[in-house]
Computed example of a mutant assay.
Amino acid sequence: MSQLTHLNHQGEANMVDVSSKDNSVRVARAQALITMTPETLALITDGKHTKGDVFGVARIAGIQAAKRCSDLIPLCHPLMLTKVAVDFEILADSNSVRVESLCKLTGKTGVEMEALTAASVAALTLFDMCKASDPMMVISEVKVLEKQGGKSGHWHAN
């Protein structure tokens, strides 16, 4: 198992010093799944939700969240993201929406936390906009799907 990098030699939380790392292109993709009733999914997909463009609002929320990740997660570095995308896949057979985010930059540290934050906040926004019609929605399967760049290279989740 790898050493925990956010602890100093005394076991105290600290922000990792990345100043000696080389810049490289860093990319991460993450997902979140939100499951709801068929009626709620139909409201969203048919564009009949009284709050308007649910996906549009959730997309902007996810993008904003990625940009503010270091304000939310205490030891994250503030990053100059060059790309943030949030997309939605309707999974009608399971009455779910799969939220997928992509974050990219050229820098000294990875963007996994930004991608996870974007996917999570987009799913939370879907929940917020639809909770009046379906308070029992479930957000699950929040995970990193892919990471590129840096010393550890490129990997995909199985």
Rank of each mutant, 00 (worst) to 15 (best):
S2I: 12
L4S: 15
L4G: 05
T5N: 12
H6I: 14
G11R: 08
A13E: 03
S19D: 02
K21R: 14
R29F: 11
Q31Y: 05
A32W: 13
L33Y: 07
L33Q: 13
L33W: 13
T35R: 12
T35V: 08
M36K: 00
I44H: 05
G56H: 12
A58E: 04
R59W: 12
G62T: 01
G62K: 02
G62A: 00
S70N: 09
S70K: 07
D71M: 08
D71S: 12
P74Y: 01
P74F: 03
C76W: 02
H77N: 09
M80V: 12
L81R: 03
D87R: 15
A92D: 15
S94M: 11
V97A: 03
V99S: 02
V99R: 10
S101Q: 01
L102K: 13
G107V: 03
V111E: 03
E112S: 10
A115L: 11
L116Y: 13
A118C: 06
A122L: 11
A123P: 08
L124Y: 07
T125G: 01
L126A: 00
M129S: 03
C130G: 02
A132Q: 14
S133K: 07
I139R: 13
E141R: 15
E146Q: 14
E146D: 10
Q148Y: 08
K151T: 04
S152N: 13
H156A: 11
A157F: 06
